[in-house]
Structure formats: C-alpha cells, structure tokens
C-alpha cells in the first residue's frame, strides 16, 4: 500500500455510485464517481485504485468479479473501501488499454451468435483481455491461442455465468439425445472442472471412470503455460498405432517404454495402472500407452498431458498396403481400422496434440512421430493455473496424483489399437452410425474376448 492509501466508509445506497476499469493484471481502478453519491462525499476520486472492499482483496480480481462483488453488496449496509490514489498508473493503463489478462481452456462447444463472436470447441485456449466487453456484463473480449502458441483472431465469448448456462444446457441436451457421441466426455469434463475434484480423487476408488458420474460442468478452466518437467506419456492413435508403438520401444528403448496393461478386476478387459505410467516417467522415458480417447482425457485431468499423435490414413487401401509391408503377420481389418480412424477424427480431434498423414511413402511417418514427440516435449503445455507456482523439481510429484489416485487405472483401448480377429476379406456388420465407437466401448473389446 502506498502512503496515499486510505480507508473510506459509507452506507451503500441503491448503488455504490462508481464505475470501474482495469482488471486482474493491473488492478481495479475507479473511472468515474457519481456526483452527489456517498462515495463522492467520502472522497473517492477517479484514478483511485481499490485495494480491498470489506474483507475481500481486489488485487487479483477481474473487472467483472469486482463489479459483481460490489453489485451484490446489500443496499443500506456500510461498505469499507481501502483505496490509494494511483493517477500515474491509471493514466498509463488507460492509454495502453490494458486491463484483464488471463488464459482459459474451454470445456464445451460454442457456436457464435453474433458477428463479433468466436466459435470454439472444447479444448480451445483463449487469452481473455476484458471481462466486461463494452463496459457491460455478459461477454468477454478474448483472443484465440493457436497450437503454435501465437495469438489468432479476436472476438467475444460468453462470460463465466453465461458459459455455465450454455454448458449445462449442452450437457443436458447431450445426455437426453441418446445419440451422444461424447457422453463420456461430457461427464468427464463435468467432473474435470470441479474445484473440489481433487478431493474426490483422493477419496477415489480404483477406477477413475467412476468419478465421472458426479460433478458440475466446468465451462472455463484457468490455465498457464508451463514446461513439462517429466517425459510426457505418448498415445498414438490411428491404423498403425500398434506398429508405431512396437517400433519405438524396440528401436529406442532408452527413450520409450510400453506401459504394461493388466486385466481389470473380474473382467476380461484390460487397464493400464496410472502408477506404471508414473514409474516410466521416473525413468526419464516416454510411456507408450494403448488407451481409449476418454482415458486420454483422464490423463489430462491428472495433469500428465500426454502427447497424442493421430495418424491420418489416406484410404483403406493405403492402410492395407502399409500394414502388409510393416506387419505382414497382422490380421487386423483395414476396413475397420479405416472406419475407426474416421470416427476418431470426427469425435476426438480435440484430444490430438498433432496429426500426421500416412500418405507419404517409406518411413516418413516414423520420423514424423519422433519429431513431434521431441518438439512437443520441449514446448510448454497449457496447465491448470492452480498449480502454476509449484517448484519445477517438485512437479512430477505434484503433477502426479496422490498415491491412492496413482493406483488408478486407464482404460486400455479396446478399439483403436487392439488387434481384431476379423480379416480384410470379411464383410461383417459394421456401421458408421455408432459414433461412440471411437470412445470407450465396453461391448467391443480386445481380441482375447469372444
């Protein structure tokens, strides 16, 4: 607090009689004082920074949060303001047009409803620049962040409370539609945003998927850019995933290790223990995981942030030729692999951290996968903001969930990466209508099952 800081007290009338500017990045400032208001008579002036109101610090609030806080105070009650005159910073702030500044990751899909709006899909990251677009509550001014971490187009997105409404409506619609390709996702992200989710995790049972049954939908997650202090797990998706994983672990054993899958209790399906992923990371290697897309979401949730490379096939024939060349003994159906890849692309692309094309000849795909893993390992990751100030050397410990959670399981991919008994010549019933095929499909499991 500067020497000019002071405390003012007055009874809130119908309103406080102030307009605010600034935001979490620069502080909350008074931009106007209503003439004749009690705030005016108590000496609140334009350019004053509000440090605290009653018991609430204003030092890190967004402009919207500050406004909502003051609006929610009941009229007729005394308000105590800690303020300081900061004319120089106030002028500088106005001339440089800065205010709020923070990053969010979205956890619902949004179709823009105004020309200046931005559409987005879950997983998109935005830099929020103003939580009160045009001075009113309702929309945030934001810039989309590209995969290359460069800022892209600027526009408006719903504010927190509108986002909550839209997201919960979306999840209700999806839950009741019956043709929901992302029920598991929606459920998962519902849980994902819960502030208390970690507590729930601690109370957790063995199967993380049990957690996805509860919780509230989190529309926006605060994130910061942070480098991974451990070797990120790697998930390869697409029609040659099995081959890629074998080749990486065989040819580069000092860098890659396949995470072992174990039978799930009382079931023929298989799971990967989260703890074995952690153990591989502790050996300073990338764990190679054969898991479902929804298990990828769980990995993100527990902040392992896997590198997820999708191998995009050119055609069914291309897959067939490639697999005959790379794994002549495999009996996987190229028709099925091709259909699965298409569904995965349609339903899960928000989970991919990179996509490679399989149309190139030779071993280009293999080189590309290695390049991507190397590059992404060295790039920072959008990480939950809550744990941003953890010391790097502690990160693995903290990034990893507590021990009870570490015994959690990841569902093995019963669908994308496993070997099917059916062969290319077969013409079994296989429809494209089942969008959830690309996600966990307990009904369709590994080749060991009937």
């Amino acid at each position: 607090y500067s020497t000019s800081s002071r405390v003012v007290r007055f009874v809130k009338a119908k309103s406080v009689g102030l307009r605010l500017t600034g935001g979490n990045d620069v502080g909350i400032f008074v931009s106007s004082v209503q003439e004749g208001s009690l705030a005016d008579s108590q000496g609140v002036r334009e350019g004053d920074q509000i440090l605290q109101v009653n018991d609430t610090s204003f030092q890190n609030l967004t402009r919207e949060e500050a406004v909502e806080y003051l609006m929610a105070l009941p009229p007729g009650e005394e308000v105590t303001l800690w303020i300081q005159s900061k004319q120089d910073i106030y002028r500088k702030m106005i001339s440089s047009n800065v205010g709020d500044s923070f990053y969010i990751r979205t956890h619902f899909d949004f179709e823009k409803d105004t020309p200046s709006g931005l559409s987005f899909v879950r997983g998109d990251v935005f830099h929020v620049l103003d939580t009160m677009y045009r001075g009113r509550l309702g929309s945030w001014l934001a810039v989309r962040m590209g995969r290359d971490l460069q800022e892209q187009e600027r526009g408006i997105i719903p504010n927190q409370s509108r986002a909550e409404q839209i997201a919960s409506l979306e999840s209700v619609l999806k839950a009741t539609s019956g043709t929901n390709p992302s029920g598991a996702r929606a459920e998962f992200w519902k849980l994902r945003g819960l502030r208390g989710a970690k507590k729930m995790l601690r109370k957790s049972r063995e199967d993380l998927s049990a957690l996805t049954k509860q919780g509230r939908y989190p529309p926006y997650e605060r994130v910061v850019l942070k480098e991974a202090s451990f070797k990120r797990p790697v998930v390869i998706l697409g029609p040659i995933a099995d081959i890629a994983v074998q080749k990486l672990s065989r040819e580069l054993p000092e860098l890659f290790e396949i995470a072992p899958s174990v039978p799930r209790d009382g079931a023929s399906s298989k799971v990967i223990k989260l703890d074995s992923v952690r153990q591989i990371a502790e050996k300073n290697k990338h764990a190679l995981l054969d898991i479902t897309p929804s298990a990828v979401e769980r990995l993100n949730y527990v902040q392992y942030y896997p590198v997820v490379v999708f191998c995009q096939p050119e055609s069914r024939q291309g897959i067939k030729a490639m697999r005959q060349w790379l794994a002549p003994d495999s009996r996987k159906s190229s028709r099925r692999l091709y259909a699965q890849a298409n569904k995965m692309k349609k339903n899960c692309s928000h989970l991919f951290t990179a996509t490679i094309s399989l149309s190139g000849g030779g071993n280009a795909w293999y080189e590309q996968i290695q390049d991507i893993i190397r590059t992404q390992q060295n790039q920072p990751v959008w990480t939950t903001a809550d744990q941003a100030d953890v010391a790097p050397e502690d990160s693995l410990e903290v990034l990893n969930p507590p021990s009870r959670v570490a015994s959690g399981y990841l569902t093995c991919d019963s669908h994308a990466n496993s070997d099917y008994d059916d062969t290319d010549g077969e013409t079994g019933a296989f429809t494209d209508g089942e969008a959830e095929d690309a996600y966990d499909q307990p009904g369709l499991a590994r080749s060991s099952e009937p």
Binding site: S15, V16, G17, L18, R19, L20, T21, G22, G23, F29, S31, S32, Q34, R63, V67, L70, M71, I94, N97, V98, G99, D100, L129, D130, M132, Y133, R134, G135, R136, L137, L141
Partner: peptide, 12 residues
C-alpha cells in the same frame, strides 16, 4: 474496444 477509460462501463 477494451476496458479503455471505463467511461462506457455500467454504474455500480
């Protein structure tokens, strides 16, 4: 339009 001078902002 950013927060700017806050003169377009709602009264609270």
């Amino acid at each position: 339009s950013k927060s700017g001078d806050g003169k377009n902002s709602v009264w609270i």
